[in-house]
């Protein structure tokens, strides 16, 4: 670009700024708001490189370099947390995706409209209740005195004594997965139903002329047609594997299963804030945030390479 051209551009830029001063004035309060509440805390990341002690300002603290990260990566609990987070994320992602697709396929086959509508309405409902309420319901359903799951299993003579499901460490991940499906399956199906509705009906007509039954139509037409939607959603969710959710684990955990329930935010709370190790907790937060950011952007690149719509 020649100098005169950029000069013209600069001139039009200032001209436009002047012309749009009302819009700019309208933006300023919101920019101040978002910078204070979302970007100033990132300035607090400096704490991770200090031995933070309350009472002094952030610039008067002792600097310790990467000491907190060294502690973090040498902490066996950190690897436990990483394992739990990844495991629960993957379980939730796989179970949630499969269940939502299956539900969408089933709803699409239903011809009785009032039945379809009612099932849909009921299936979205749990999405809108809080995890506090949902955790209460899960706890009651699994309880040893009169919980429905134990009652049913006992009346079917599958078990003799009630089982304390929430006290078995190895079951915790699966309880998280299943309760996630219970709460989100209906909501998750909406997007697949929309994708199915967009499929060209002539595809089914020609398949039927070729003698394909309903199962074959689902397998050879419906599923391949919604594959782009499935892959975009999967890739997008891959970016979030380090945030396996926190409320669900926090509300359903107890002392017996904590080694399998501890995810990053619980780790930050219990090993950082409650022990007044503020710098350590900040280091944990940075690790989570930076790795998530890398994952989200790689997922985005992956989606782009696969020719899907960019997510960011």
């Amino acid at each position: 670009m020649t100098t005169s051209a950029s000069a013209v551009q600069r001139k039009t830029f200032w001209h436009r700024v002047k012309q749009q001063k009302v819009l700019i004035l309208m933006t300023i309060p919101f920019l101040v708001h978002v910078i204070i509440f979302r970007y100033v805390p990132i300035w607090g990341w400096l704490m991770a490189f200090q031995n933070y002690w309350p009472g002094k300002s952030i610039l008067q603290q002792t600097w310790v370099g990467f000491e907190n990260f060294r502690l973090l990566f040498n902490d066996p609990v950190f690897y436990q947390v990483l394992r739990n987070t990844l495991a629960m994320s993957v379980i939730k992602l796989v179970m949630g995706t499969v269940a939502s697709i299956v539900l969408a396929l089933m709803l699409n086959e239903v011809r009785i409209m009032w039945f379809k509508k009612s099932v849909q309405t009921i299936s979205y409902l749990p999405h809108f209740i809080s995890w506090v309420v949902a955790a209460n319901l899960v706890r009651d359903a699994l309880s040893t005195d009169g919980g429905i799951i134990n009652e049913v299993l006992m009346s079917l003579r599958i078990i003799k004594e009630p089982i304390m499901f929430l006290g078995i460490p190895t079951l915790f991940w699966w309880i998280i997965g299943i309760s996630h499906v219970w709460k989100e399956v209906g909501w998750g199906a909406i997007i697949y139903l929309a994708a199915i509705a967009a499929i060209d009906p002539t595809l089914y007509e020609s398949a039927m002329i070729d003698g394909a039954g309903r199962l074959k139509q689902i397998w050879y037409i419906t599923l391949p047609s919604i594959r782009p939607t499935i892959s975009v959603l999967l890739i997008m969710n891959l970016g979030w594997v380090l945030s396996a959710g926190f409320e669900q684990q926090y509300l359903l955990q107890n002392g017996r299963v904590i080694d399998y329930a501890r995810v990053f935010t619980i780790y930050e709370l219990d090993y950082g804030i409650k022990m007044m190790r503020y710098s350590f907790a900040t280091a944990v937060g940075i690790f989570r945030s930076v790795v998530s950011l890398i994952l989200v952007f790689s997922a985005n690149q992956l989606a782009k390479r696969w020719g899907q719509e960019r997510l960011v």
Binding site: F13, R16, V17, Q20, L23, I24, T27, L31, V34, I35, I36, F37, R38, Y39, V40, P41, I42, W43, G44, W45, M47, T265, E268, L269, G272, I273, Y278, A281, T282, V284, G285, I286, R288, S289, S292, L293, V296, V312
Partner: peptide
């Protein structure tokens, strides 16, 4: 508004907040 000069900048500032957060402790201190 397509003609707004800072359109992309402002959008970017907001979209980025979906992916990074300061973490519990810095936010609490703020």
């Amino acid at each position: 508004r397509k003609e707004f000069v800072f359109r992309r900048l402002v959008s970017f500032i907001y979209v980025l907040t979906m992916y990074i957060d300061g973490g519990l402790v810095p936010t609490y201190f703020l």
